[in-house]
């Protein structure tokens, strides 16, 4: 069972799957093992937005709630990610598209800029210290790269073993990475677009209520051809998606002019 989002602006228009995993209970009921509320509630306000950096659109796709996505952003192109429903964490990994042993490195990104948060101007660096992408536009105060990705396994630590079969971002990364020959060894500390992880003075840190809103965006200019993996976070147990998973929109533009940070 699927529903189609009516949005003629985007191409191609993809479909949003609705959970269909079913179990026939002894009393004859068909029920889903996917928790109620795994996809956004009726009436949720959605803002589909526009590219943050103007230019010819070369790709425009939706990422359904709970789903994964990948694409290559060529050097010079700009990827706009739209937080369509607000406070929807887009867990993100980046790779040198031609040589995936070179991949996003949270510690290098942070150490080079001497700051623990991602903001406009942050250079997203690889494990070789090279620039993969630059944040050229950003509509929330700060973006996270410390909180990591949820997984079935870490969920058992955080919430208990009863959530073992909940979907998680690491599952999405494995699914999506496999399309590019990537596996367990290729999943490293990631970026969480639109997620809020403050670090307090005593070192306490955690995922708290987001600072984003429907239609807020971040724009990333590729410095080299970059493979982007996204997990539209399906977490049901913390505020990384307002407990209401919503779509993301991915738009790649070929900027009309060289676009600089903060332009």
């Amino acid at each position: 069972m699927t529903t189609t989002i009516d949005n003629p602006v985007m191409r191609p228009v993809t479909t949003v799957p609705v959970p269909v995993t079913t179990y026939l209970t002894p009393d004859g009921q068909l029920v889903s093992s996917v928790p109620v509320g795994a996809s956004y509630a009726d009436g949720t306000h959605l803002e589909w937005g526009d590219p943050l950096v103007p230019g010819a659109v070369v790709l425009d796709e939706q990422v359904a709630p709970r789903a994964s996505w990948s694409g290559v952003v060529r050097a010079g192109q700009v990827l706009t990610i739209v937080d369509v429903g607000g406070n929807q964490s887009g867990d993100c990994l980046l790779y040198n598209a031609d040589h995936t042993d070179e991949r996003y490195s949270a510690p290098d990104t942070l150490a080079w800029q001497d700051n623990a948060y991602i903001r406009t101007g942050t250079v997203l660096r690889s494990n070789l210290g090279r620039a993969l992408m630059t944040v050229v536009g950003n509509e929330i105060d700060r973006q996270d790269t410390i909180g990591g990705a949820c997984s079935r396994e870490s969920n058992t630590l955080r919430y208990g073993h009863h959530v073992m079969y909940h979907h998680g971002c690491r599952e999405n990364f494995l699914t999506e990475g496999a399309k590019h020959g990537l596996g367990m060894r290729d999943i490293v500390s990631n970026i969480n677009w639109f997620m809020n992880v403050p670090i307090e003075e005593d070192g306490a840190l955690g995922i708290v209520d987001g600072m984003s809103a429907p239609g807020r965006r971040v724009a990333l200019r590729a410095e080299i051809d970059t493979l982007v993996l996204i997990s539209n976070c399906p977490q049901m147990n913390n505020p990384c998606n307002d407990f209401n998973p919503t779509p993301l929109r991915m738009i790649v533009t070929e900027p009309d002019v060289d676009y600089e940070v903060g332009q």
Binding site: A106, P107, I146, G147, G148, A149, S154, L157, R158, S189, N190, V197, I199, G203, A204, L205, G206, I207
Partner: peptide, 14 residues
């Protein structure tokens, strides 16, 4: 080693 989980799960960065 997963540094993110090492910081996140115990709710402590240091």
């Amino acid at each position: 080693l997963n540094v993110a989980d090492t910081q996140k799960i115990p709710w402590q960065a240091y």
